[in-house]
Write a protein that binds this DNA or RNA. Structure first.
Lengths: 74, 74
DNA sequence: CCGTAATGCAATGTATACATTGCATAAAGT
DNA sequence: ACTTTATGCAATGTATACATTGCATTACGG
């Protein structure tokens, strides 16, 4: 699950801890999402979008081939 | 978790069962998402987008007030 | 060198997304 | 009346998102 959370977070000058507090999760969760190790829920994706003032497509869109790569990468 | 899955699904002429097969989940899961009773994962949101040829923002965006309403509605 | 801020990661527990099965109802065709 | 198709919903089990705690590393400032 690649995404643009880290770039967007740095762009609005927030640490992982601050973003975590803003969206109501732990720093650990933010870290794992940035690292692509979690498949976050829609609600959390939206909360992150609000916090960094960007859209779902801007932060979380990956095209179909990208997703397929994830699976066949194993 | 309000969304536009049902409208988009009907628009591309798929039944819940057919959409479920295309995205690799059960009909039950599609039904609950359309009814707003599940908070789907990003991967599933993306799979649905591919299946109905629309973007995350088109199908799943709800603005911040919408989310807050969900919480304070209970 | 020592303290602090920012991040990565590992172990374990809890909440919930999703699977599976089964039954009920409404609409359309025969 | 009977069958088929599409949908809703309830009960129970499994996988995983997320919480919690703790420790390690890097970088910066005293």
């Amino acid at each position: 699950m690649k995404n643009n959370v880290k770039v967007a977070r740095v762009h609005v000058d927030l640490t992982q801890q601050q973003l975590a507090e803003k969206v109501g999760v732990t720093r650990q969760t933010i870290s794992l999402i940035e690292k692509g190790k979690y498949n976050p829920t829609l609600k959390l994706c939206l909360a992150i979008c609000y916090a960094v003032n960007q859209s779902l497509d801007e932060i979380f869109w990956v095209d179909q081939e990208g997703l397929l790569d994830e699976k066949s990468k194993g």
